Computed example of a mutant assay.
Amino acid sequence: MAPEYSPWRRYCALGDSVVEEPGGFAELVRDALEPDAFVNLGVRNLRAAEVRDVQLPRALAFAPDLAMVVCGANDAMRPGYEARADEVDAALAGIVEPLQRAGATVVTVSVFVMAEYPRMPAWLATGFARRMAVLAQRTNALAARLGTVHADLSRHPAIAAGEVLTGEDGLHGNAYSHRIAAAAVLDRLARLEEYR
C-alpha cells in the first residue's frame, strides 16, 4: 500500500525494459503516489553503464525527490557477467549516489529470478538463472550499503508457488508480476519511519 501521505512530488524512473514497460510497475507506483511530475526514462536493452551515461544527466536535470533505478539484467544476461560484476555494481552506484546527493529518495529493485527460463534460446538460457541470482544478491548488498529503499523480488513467494510471472517472451514480466512489484515498492516506501 502507498504511504498515507506521499511527500514525493517529482518522481523519475531510470533503467531498462523493466522500467520502460508501458503500464508497468514504475507507472503503477506513479499512479499510487500521484506526484505532480513524472518522467520515465527507461529504454530497453541498456546496460547499467549506459543507463548511468545516458539517463542520469536527464534525471538530475529533472530534479526528482523520488527516483527508481532498475538495471543490470542486460549485463547479467550475457555470459561472463561474474567477471564484470564489480563494474556493473560501480555503474549502479554511479547512478544511485548522485541522485541521493541531489536530495532524491532512491528506490532499487532486485527483479524476479525464475528457476528456469524455458522459452529463451538455449545459448542464452544456460546459466541465465544463475547469473540473475548473482545480480540479485549483489544488488541487495549494494542497496544495503547505499541505503536505498529496496524491494527484493528475487525470492518472492509467487516464484516458489509456481505462479506465472512472465509474459509471452518468457523473460519480461506480465501484468500480474508488475502489480506484485509495485505493491512491494509501495510497501517499502510506506515503511519509511519519517513518513508514518
Rank of each mutant, 00 (worst) to 15 (best):
V107G: 01
A129K: 02
W123Q: 14
Y117D: 06
D89V: 10
A93P: 01
V88E: 11
V109R: 02
F128C: 06
Q137N: 15
G94F: 07
D89L: 09
A136V: 00
V113A: 09
Q100K: 15
R119V: 05
A91Y: 02
G103D: 07
P118T: 11
M120F: 11
R101I: 03
M132V: 02
Q137A: 13
A125I: 11
R130A: 13
M114N: 13
A90F: 09
E116V: 03
G127H: 01
Q100L: 11
G94D: 10
F128E: 00
V107R: 05
L124W: 13
T139A: 10
A133T: 05
E116Y: 05
T126K: 15
A104S: 15
V113D: 03
L124V: 15
P121Y: 08
V111M: 13
V111D: 08
V106Q: 00
L135D: 00
G103Y: 04
V106C: 04
A122C: 06
G103C: 05
L135M: 02
L92A: 09
P118A: 10
R130H: 10
A104R: 11
M120Q: 14
I95P: 00
L135T: 01
V96I: 15
L124R: 14
G127P: 05
V113N: 10
E97C: 07
R138W: 06
V88P: 00
V134N: 07
G94R: 11
M132R: 09
R119M: 14
V109M: 15
V109N: 07
V134Q: 11
A102L: 03
A115D: 15
A136E: 03
L92R: 04
V96S: 02
Q137K: 14
G127T: 08
A122E: 14
S110K: 03
D89F: 02
I95L: 02
Q100E: 06
V88N: 08
E97S: 10
P118W: 11
A90C: 03
R130W: 04
T105R: 12
R131L: 05
G127R: 04
Y117N: 11
L135Q: 01
T105M: 08
T126I: 08
A93T: 09
A90P: 00
G103W: 05
Q137H: 12
T108E: 10
Q137R: 15
A93F: 06
P118H: 09
A125F: 11
V109Q: 08
M114L: 15
L135I: 03
V106F: 02
G103S: 08
F112L: 05
D89R: 10
Q137V: 09
T126C: 12
